[in-house]
């Protein structure tokens, strides 16, 4: 049994919160630069330029990339030979989020009773935590800061099996089209296919963790990603919805087997401020 102290976890999570909010991933920056090259619309091009400038300012001045510093979504892969000592693992993650958001001057966006009083918890807790037990003696923590605008425009579709591949494509296009400028394009479009209602949404969200533009290793799924990507970028929505060729930076699809009566599809939209960082302890 390898031991990991919760204090180490708290500190690591706090740091991930700040890194994610101040420094856009290299893959996202590269995708935005490439988008700026291919964008035909002058206003779209200028918007992409501004977004790159924004990323530079954020990094240099430790200012959040977006005022919406997001819900802290944490994906953990806990090695089965790891022993967490000194406290509760979930509480440690929560404390890390609390310290990261408070110490980093990040906006706290979580409200306690969403259907009524909507009082802010004032420390951006609780985080949303997904835990997986894996072989080994390491603890991997991935932190995603998920903004409200793009999350609001994400959708679940329980398609009829007969709708098949085309149904999946149409559902993804429709979701991006309805999101328009509201979800802050250019987007990373996470598509989950299969599983159950709960699992397909998680699958779509996990698809967003992939390096921007990296295809699914399964050629059939990669082909589907490409087709959705081309369709979406023909919508004309463009950066910020101001018109143009680049509505999506990438489409990432993940697939699971499903019940014979079902074809679940989930589309989780990620704004251009695609913020996630990870650490292996």
């Amino acid at each position: 049994m390898r031991e990991i102290e919760v204090s180490v976890i708290i500190e690591a999570v706090a740091q991930l919160c700040q890194e994610a909010n101040f420094e856009l991933g290299k893959d996202v920056v590269a995708a935005l630069k490439k988008a700026e090259q291919v964008e035909e619309s002058p206003l779209g091009k200028e918007t992409l330029k501004r977004l790159l400038e924004n990323a530079q300012i954020a990094k240099k001045e430790l200012l959040p990339l977006c005022q919406d510093c997001g819900t802290a979504v944490v994906f953990m892969e806990v090695g089965q030979d790891v022993h967490i000592v000194g406290g509760n693992l979930d509480k440690a993650i929560e404390e890390g989020v609390r310290q990261g958001y408070t110490g980093g001057y990040l906006r706290k966006s979580m409200v306690k009773q969403p259907f009524s009083a909507r009082v802010n918890t004032n420390d951006n807790t609780p985080p949303i935590i997904h835990t997986e037990i894996v072989p080994g003696d390491r603890l991997k923590i991935i932190l995603m800061c998920k903004g409200g605008g793009a999350e609001n425009m994400s959708r679940l579709g329980m398609l009829k099996p007969v709708e098949g591949r085309q149904g999946v494509i149409d559902f993804a296009i429709k979701t991006v089209e309805e999101a328009g400028g509201k979800a802050c394009p250019p987007l990373v479009v996470g598509v989950g296919i299969g599983g159950t209602t709960d699992m397909v949404m998680l699958l779509a969200k996990k698809a967003l963790l992939r390096k921007v533009g990296e295809s699914n290793p399964d050629p059939e799924i990669a082909e589907l990603e490409k087709e959705i990507f081309n369709h979406v970028n023909n919508l004309g929505i463009g950066p910020s919805g101001f018109g143009g060729r680049v509505t999506a930076l990438a489409v990432h699809a993940e697939v699971l087997p499903s019940h014979t009566a079902s074809l679940p599809v989930a589309v989780n939209l990620q704004c251009h401020s695609a913020r996630h960082k990870e650490i292996v302890l």
Binding site: N54, I57, L63, L65, D68, G149, G181, S240
Partner: peptide, 13 residues
């Protein structure tokens, strides 16, 4: 008017 969504650090200037 619309401003660029997600250009928050830049707009703060």
């Amino acid at each position: 008017f619309v401003a660029i969504g997600g250009a928050a650090a830049l707009l703060s200037k």
